[in-house]
Design a binder for these strands. Structure first.
Length: 337
DNA sequence: CGTTTTTGACCGGCGC
DNA sequence: GCGCCGGTCAAAAACG
């Protein structure tokens, strides 16, 4: 019979009975009394002995599982620490290289650049010789942020030397933004509140959709660039890659870029169509969702670990388990007078 | 007329 | 050394 009970009532029954804080607690008290009166006074039957053995076995298994879970979490934390350390070491090495080789390289071999570009660059580049410290909050679209806002020296190197490879000296901020767009709309425009000037378009090898290159045109010396390309997997998704920090604040909400001169925007301020706002919200929602999911996962792991530790250490857990099991036994066994 | 977009050409890095 | 490829330039066209 006990075998039938165990087969017919698998683990859900156990889990139901383990809700310590639920109204079954009151029933557990009464059932405990019943257990003591009915079962303890009477000679233990072999069924009860089998149940107790099963109970011990389940408790032991639960304890083992808890230990395994703790070990797993500990190993996970250890591995995560190693990864973090390796990434920090790589970032430190990269920063050191960029602060030495890039500065020296741009000064030692200026002939690497185009001649006409250098003349233009020196003429206009002095307008903003040092990158301002502002725009620390401009990374609001960042999904993957490479470095922190304190590493602005890389930007100062990056601006005068135009053809610095991205892996030699990464811009101070590289972030990606995914925007859902109408596939019928062929324009590669991602509304993010800034003014952008398109300076090139290219069809890349790994994606049939062309990639558009934009510069921030709100401030003359703003080093921020943006690449926009439709996702190869989903053409309805626009992937915008931002490089660098804005050296100005976010412009006031008005028509972004698209064939609107600043002179016309001064007097007649029109309310922007809702589409930019919607896309902006979509970007922020996606990023918030990613962060929330990561946080929720970490919280779940932490919660599971705490639950395992609490349950295995709590001396009342076994008593509660006994009461719960006994209560279920009394419920399921036909009342024998 | 000033600004922005388009688009072919050019440049430099990288792999073979 | 050569070709490929991504990024950029700049003249011409388009636009308001």
């Amino acid at each position: 019979m006990d075998e039938q009970w165990m087969i017919g009532q698998p683990s859900p029954t156990l889990s139901l009975g383990l809700n310590l804080g639920r109204p079954t607690a009151r029933r557990a008290v009464t059932t405990k009394v019943l257990v003591e009166e009915d079962f303890m006074s009477v000679k233990k039957s072999h069924e009860v002995e089998a149940l107790e053995a099963e109970l011990r076995r389940v408790g032991e298994e639960n304890r083992r599982l808890g230990e395994m879970l703790r070990a797993l979490v500990a190993k996970y934390g250890e591995l995560q620490g190693k990864v973090t350390g390796m990434m920090a070491a790589a970032a430190a090495t990269q920063q050191h290289q960029s602060s030495t080789t890039s500065e020296g390289g741009s000064a030692a071999s200026p002939s690497r650049k185009r001649v006409r570009s250098d003349s233009l660059e020196t003429a206009g580049g002095n307008r903003n010789p040092s990158p301002p410290l502002a725009a620390a909050g401009s990374g609001q679209f960042a999904v993957t942020v490479a470095v922190g806002p304190d590493q602005t020296e890389c930007t100062s190197v990056h601006e005068p030397s135009k053809r610095v490879r991205a892996d030699e000296c990464k811009p101070s901020r590289v972030s990606k933004s995914y925007v859902h767009a109408d596939p019928a709309d062929l324009s590669l425009v991602v509304k993010d509140g800034y003014q952008w000037r398109k300076y090139g378009q290219k069809v890349t090898k790994d994606n049939p959709c062309p990639r558009a290159y934009f510069r921030c045109s709100f401030a003359p010396g703003c080093p921020v660039k943006k690449k926009v390309q439709r996702s190869a997997d989903d053409v309805t998704v626009l992937v915008a890659t931002y490089e660098g920090d804005h050296n100005h604040g976010q412009p006031a909400a008005k028509h972004e870029g698209a064939k609107k001169s600043d002179a016309s925007a001064g007097a007649a301020v029109r309310i922007s169509p809702p589409a930019p706002v919607v896309q902006l919200q979509q970007q922020q929602q996606q990023q918030q969702q990613l962060k929330q999911e990561a946080a929720a996962e970490a919280e779940r792991k932490n919660l599971a670990e705490q639950m395992a530790a609490t349950l295995t250490r709590d001396p009342g857990f076994k008593a509660a388990l006994v009461s719960a099991l006994s209560g279920r036994i009394l419920e399921l066994t036909p009342s024998n007078s």
